[in-house]
Design a protein around this nucleic acid. Structure first.
Lengths: 252, 252
DNA sequence: GAGTGGTCTAGACCACTGA
DNA sequence: CAGTGGTCTAGACCACTCG
């Protein structure tokens, strides 16, 4: 009890018990902001779960769940018999279920997209397998060039199942694929990703303005809805000098 | 209630209420095995949480926690008002807080390691910053070649802080770095990773038996203990035809 | 021994879904 | 409407760490 594991009271004013936002989420998001802004410094110890609950008028499981969220994000470390501490390590944004377009916008950049091709085709064997449809099914094949602040950054190739054959190039140049899918009520529940590297093929070096045969960082993704249906299958390649994948791993 | 969301009773026999293994973990791990082995098929619906609890003599929060584990792993999908279903999509192993050596062993391969160099040096500015020590501190610099079934696969460069200056090349050729650290009671709590790509430098193409200037998949990692101290900083490069990073992402 | 997080119980009310 | 998961409460006992 020599150290004072407290924080400014005002972090947790105005908890809304009637609205739709869960209490544990209100707690964890405010706590996260306070940590990221340095209001609660790295290495600081939190109060124990029970007294936090008493101060806020919450039960221990609710407080505990809020803290668990930040433990999972790698912002806090809990140790039995010791307490809860703010992590010293700089935390990077995890690989999330978001699109490149959204990642860039959030990072303060202004992404732009050029649709290189947008075709409705009959799926060949390989494409049909990726989308889990019958070969010959009419699907959408899409190829885009994504730039950031005017610099070409990635070539995005995507396959879409039959239900999305009405997407137009104009909307794609303005809005990012995932944003369009969400607007149609399509929810991505799970995605499998494989990250790798290879040389440029075909016209990729011209599109990305790099030497022919240069290394590319690649990401292959298949996204599923709640029923296990494939929503989208993508093969993306990035200029490795402009893009990389960051993750924070937390031991369980 | 038309579908019968049940499973073989024998999955959950022999729950151990006195041992050190939490009940929720016993449930989730057995359930995971049953799903991975196909005993519970993809798309099957689970019973609701309350009746599972009654059948097993457990409270709802305990059952719920077990299910949540598998939702987080991407094996189950829960929807309010609907129920819980086994995911249809094939699930890949997530990027975990494990070493390459352990990943390979678990995948049934026989990794071998050649220690290329193992030096105790005074940290230059850049190395000191990565390990978060003072420049000039005596650290360990380590360079290894990791092969699988005889084929060279990755060049692993690591920096270790002063407390590990007594590690020998012999133990490193047999045991993998993380295994050695764990044996000394060192626990890695958090790691930041950046995955990227670049050309080969220096002698890397010779070591990996690929053309000079070929693409490499790279991973930079800094691992921390519970107190935020750096345990290890690594720069690894992999032959992209032999290695890639797989992840399953689950929407929150 | 005092204090911490880890686990577990037995209820409760609500929001959402489908028939 | 009944059934589902999402949230929340108010306790309890335990294992672990430290002084």
């Amino acid at each position: 009890m020599s150290t004072d594991p407290v924080w400014p009271e005002e972090i947790f004013t105005d908890l809304d018990r009637s609205g739709p936002v869960p209490l544990y989420f209100q707690i964890s998001s405010r706590l996260e902001r306070a940590i990221r802004e340095g209001v609660i410094p790295a290495g600081a110890r939190l109060e124990n779960e029970i007294s936090i609950g008493e101060r806020l008028g919450l039960s221990r499981p609710t407080v505990r769940r809020a803290i668990q969220e930040l433990v999972n994000k790698g912002l806090l470390v809990r140790r039995r018999g010791i307490g809860t501490q703010v992590v010293q390590a700089r935390v990077s944004r995890p690989v999330e279920l978001t699109s490149l377009h959204e990642d860039l916008t959030r990072a303060g950049h202004r992404p732009s997209t050029r649709v290189l091709s947008l075709e409705r085709i009959a799926a060949d064997e390989h494409e049909a397998q990726r989308l889990q449809v019958e070969p010959g099914t009419e699907i959408t094949r899409l190829r885009r060039l994504r730039s950031t602040d005017g610099t070409p950054m990635a070539v995005l190739e995507n396959l879409l199942p039959p239900e999305f054959t009405d997407i137009t190039a104009e909307t794609l140049e303005a809005h990012g694929l995932y944003e369009l899918l969400r607007k149609r009520g399509v929810t991505i529940k799970i995605a499998n990703q494989v990250i790798g590297a290879r040389r440029t093929h075909g016209d990729e070096h011209e599109l990305l303005d790099i030497p022919k045969g240069s290394p590319l960082l690649t990401m292959d993704r298949v996204a599923f809805d709640h029923g296990g249906r494939v929503i989208e299958a993508g093969h993306h390649c990035y200029r490795p000098d402009l893009y990389s994948f960051e993750t924070t791993l937390v031991s369980r």
